[in-house]
Amino acid sequence: MRVQFWGAPIRLRFLRRITPWVFIGVSLFAVRLSKGVVFSDVYSLMIRPFWPGSAQKEWLQRSIQTEQYARLQLLIEDNQRLRSLLSLEKSALSKGLISAAVISRRSTGWWQQLELGKGSLNGISEGDIVIGPGGLLGRIGSVTPTTSRVLLLTAPSSRVAVWIPRNKHHGMLIGRGTNRPQLTFVDRTPKVLPGDLVSTSPASTLMPPNIPVGVIQSIDFSALPSPNAVIQLIAAPHAIDWVQVKTR
């Protein structure tokens, strides 16, 4: 009887002694199981004042940009060399751009054209391409000494060779009066999707290659003689006051 009487306090005392250790063990196991979620978060919060400053991050980004720019220059030069071997039009970045103000806008109605405030005196000539914010707008159709006239991509008489850079399907972008021109594919079964980017074709001898034009909005695979797509232009001619003319 006495042993039993004294036994209970002894067990209680043992339990009381090991309980914190068990609690700590379970907690650490939970931390282990959770891959240290709480631990990492608390650690991150604690050392936040000692994080590396923005200077080092900018320095890293600048070095990455410098490296990418150098690589881009090399690729451009390589591309120019290959294109000159193929006697194709030079790259979009090979020559300067002339900024010009839009002085008259007829982007709706029977004629879709813009008048620019610079002409042949500024080095613009017929056939130069016109770029707006985001992409291609059209081509210079006629030039006077101080003005030039742009035939927009939406005009029914506009025809531009384009391709889908993602899978290299070629086609012809045909203006049809509305804000969304039609892309008629050369292939019978083009593997394109709505949302694909459309840019000028590298096979064109009239236009610099790979200038963004628009995005495929919808595709009609059943159209004859070949499938066609409706293109949403990136540069909206009705909302542009300044454009850039790329001289040839």
Binding site: P156, I174, R176, G177, T178, Q182, T184, A223, P225
Partner: peptide, 10 residues
């Protein structure tokens, strides 16, 4: 040119 959509715009 098979541009039937020109007609609705016109």
């Amino acid at each position: 040119s098979h541009l039937n959509s020109i007609n609705s715009w016109a």
